[in-house]
Structures are given as C-alpha cells and as structure tokens.
Design a protein around this nucleic acid. Structure first.
Lengths: 233, 233
DNA sequence: CGGGATCCAGTTCGATACTG
DNA sequence: CAGTATCGAACTGGATCCCG
C-alpha cells in the first residue's frame, strides 16, 4: 500500500488515496451493484487480473469498505460484502456514472462493446414476469459477433432469480432477441429504445407475443440511462 | 495517454479512465475551488511534480474538462479554466469529500498536517469585514512549526480580496492568532471550534477585540466541515 | 516568477501461467 | 472456486534545468 501518496489532510485527498487507484472505482461499481463472490466480481471486471483484484479487495478491506465473510452454505468460500462505509460510497459511484453518461461521447463508449459485460449487467435488472408455474427463457443472438460470443440465454425462474448462460441450457425458449451488439448496448444505455430499433429493423423479436410487446417494461436499463447525454456525438 | 485501460462501455468506467489517475481528483478539487493559474494550482497540490501537473492538465484538456485560455492582462500567460463539463464534476468532488469527512479516521487525516496547504485553503473562504477604508491583516503563528513554516499573514483588502504571505508584509497587524498547527487544522475541518480551543488554551487571539470575538464568523471552514464524522477516532 | 521539458530511479500494472 | 507467481511494460516522483 502506498500509504500517503498525497499527504494532504483534505478529505478529498484522503478519500482519493483509497478510491483513485486503478480499477478501484469500477470494482466498487460492481460491489455496489451487489456482486459479492470473487468470480462474480471478475465477471464485472473481466480485464482486471485476478492478482490485482485480490490486492484491491485486501486494500478495500483494510480501508473499512469491504468485509470478507465466510459463505454460510459453503464453508471455505468467501463473500466480499460492503460495510456501512462501503455502502455509503454509492453516491460517489452514482455521481461518476451520471457525469459519464452526460459527458462521455457516445462513440467513445460504443468503441468498448462487450457482450459478456452487457449480458452480466442486463441480468441484474431484467425481470419479465415468469409464466405461471414455470421458468421464462429469453435467448439473445448477436448477429455480428463470433460464434462463442454471439449466443446468450437469460433464464428467469418462478422465484424471480435470473441466470445467465453462454451455452445452450436446453430449455424451451420463450422469446428470441436478434440484433447486433451495438444496438443492444445502445438500448441498455438509454440511447435508443426497443421500439425504435424494431422500427429500423435493427432488432427482431421472435416468440411469445406478450413478452415481445412488453419488452421495454421487463428489460431493465442501465441505472444511468435516465441521465440525458450532453456530449457531442 | 493510456486510452482504454478498462474497455468497458459503462459510464462509470469511461469516466474513471479520466478521473482516477493519480492526483487527478485532488487537482480537480483545486480547479473546482477556483484556482486557474499553473502556480496557483501547484500551491494546492504542492507534492505533485510540475511535470505531472502539466501532463494532467493536458489530459483534462483533451477530455474536455479544462480549457486553457490566455490571461487578458498578461499575454503569454495561461489560465486553466473548467469547461461546463468540468464544472459538472463538482458533485463528484463533493461526494468524495463528504465521504472522506464522514469515514476517514481523524488521526489519519491529522497525520498529514501542512501549514502552507491549510493557509492556502483558508485564504479562499476567509472574509473578515475589512476596517472601513483600509485593509485588515491577520497574522498566524504556529508555535510547533519550524521558523520558515510558522508565520503566515492573511491580508484582506478593502475590496474583499485576500492575499496570503509567508514573509512579513510589514503591515500593521489587526489580530494575531497563535496556536499549534493541529489545532488550527481541527478547527478548519470542523472537528472543534475556536471557542473550545480558546477555552482549552490551545488558541490565543491577540489584538482587535471585535475581530477576535467574531472569528468563528469570518474564518471560513472547509466545505466539508458540515459533514458529521462517523469513523472511529 | 510563470510554465514548463528532460532524465532517471522506483513502483505499479497487465498478461499469462499455475495451484490447492 | 479462489486465488498466487512471475516478469516485462507502463506509469510516477524527484531533481534539475531552461526560457521569456
């Protein structure tokens, strides 16, 4: 730990010593969003090396932001949970995200498309009311992606839990969503809507009519989609 | 410039690429507080090398957060001003500072005392109503500091402008403030008050009675002093 | 004094491989 | 699943110098 890099008593500087190391803010976003397991966190920060992730988690623990607790069901496995101080960082993460949504140029963001990350994010907010008594399966196909990254399944069980698969779970599919990755990402970020995308024939919905017609309701968007963009396109 | 270190379309990650490099948040605090000149910025981030400051300013300019404009009075000199996007970062800096004030342990902050930085911060918010028709001079003496860092003068001219000197300007002093650096810093951060410090004989006020009696009014505090501390002492 | 540029040494990070 | 180990590349800080 660098300890006192800034050596300023100012609260901004003291906080920044913990928060503004590489990856820390992105990791916090994942923790604030609710991930607690090491490998769940990795899915949210796939380009961060596991070494650095482990190191950052230790630093956040030392700073009183994260506590590691044993998982009740599976001993010898750990969960990383935010402390009260950690949960109090939600306004910081939100302020940064809102600024980013408002001022980062669209093209710069869309240069970083990633289907795994998009699906992992969508999994969190997605909530189609499941068919009575059984699960609902929505299959996504990204027409512009290589085979291993093009097909994804989101499975909502009757209890409302959402699972993400990148290999066919074999369940009957209630709705197929076909589009390109950029279009789906634009929808998720609130830059366009499913209706507009269907109208432009960039998005096709095949299957259960009820599900298709209500998609804009049950397909959760990014928490920052509500912030209007100001940056130039 | 590292360009895309995170490669995530998420607005938090895109914003963090600009904001969470070393020194950037602390520098932004100084810009948000109003400093615009290179050497004024240096006084707010004295431990940052001029090389790195120049580099960060170029990066912030490229990110659309800062614009460099010629100083009207002195051509060939530059001012670094926040753009609209830059001013919009004020809530981010404020959220970080509020979190720091609430959760950083007092002793950790007070391990980073710095009289120059404290005086530079105090200069911004200080506003004793000047004596009619002439300037007001307040002299600070830190009894625990080495000679070159122990004496400071704040001079408020009739127009309300505040100047900071570390060498005797030779003006008649209206009020002497004598204390140790830790005590003055605690007052500035809202951890104690001038009244309590005078009562404990940690702070002495010598000179104009009116100025001494109203010090808690005209001595501005840190913008984060309003946030109650929760961290353990 | 304002506004940097250069050079060098020390850290930190990223990529990849590997383990209990 | 939950991490370590390793090594080169990139970043950072400090000192020094420069120029108008």
């Amino acid at each position: 730990m660098p300890e006192d890099r800034y050596r300023q008593f100012c609260p901004v500087a003291m906080a920044a010593e913990v928060l503004s190391t590489r990856w820390t803010i992105v990791l916090l976003r994942e923790l604030v969003a609710g991930s607690t397991r090491f490998n769940d966190l990795r899915r949210g920060v796939p380009r961060m090396s596991p070494t650095l992730l482990a190191k950052r988690l230790r630093e956040l623990e030392a700073a009183g932001i994260v506590q590691r607790t044993p998982v009740p069901a599976e001993p010898a496995h750990l969960a990383y949970e935010l402390t009260e101080a950690g949960r109090d960082l939600a306004p910081v993460v939100e302020a940064i995200g809102m600024w980013g949504q408002k001022w980062i140029e669209t093209e710069a963001s869309l240069a970083n498309l990633d289907p795994g990350l998009l699906m992992w994010d969508m999994r969190r907010n997605l909530a189609p009311s499941p068919m009575p008594g059984r699960r609902t399966t929505v299959a996504f196909r990204y027409t512009d992606q290589p085979p291993t990254r093009s097909q994804w399944w989101l499975i909502v069980d009757p209890g409302g839990e959402v699972d993400l698969c990148s290999i066919d779970p074999g369940f009957e599919v209630d709705l197929y969503v076909e589009t390109d990755l950029r279009c789906m990402t634009e929808i998720w970020m609130g830059l366009t809507t499913t209706g507009a995308a269907v109208g432009d024939e960039r998005l096709a919905l095949i299957g259960d009519r009820q599900l298709a017609d209500t998609i804009q309701q049950w397909l959760g968007l990014s928490p920052f989609a509500v912030q209007e963009k100001r940056a130039s396109r």
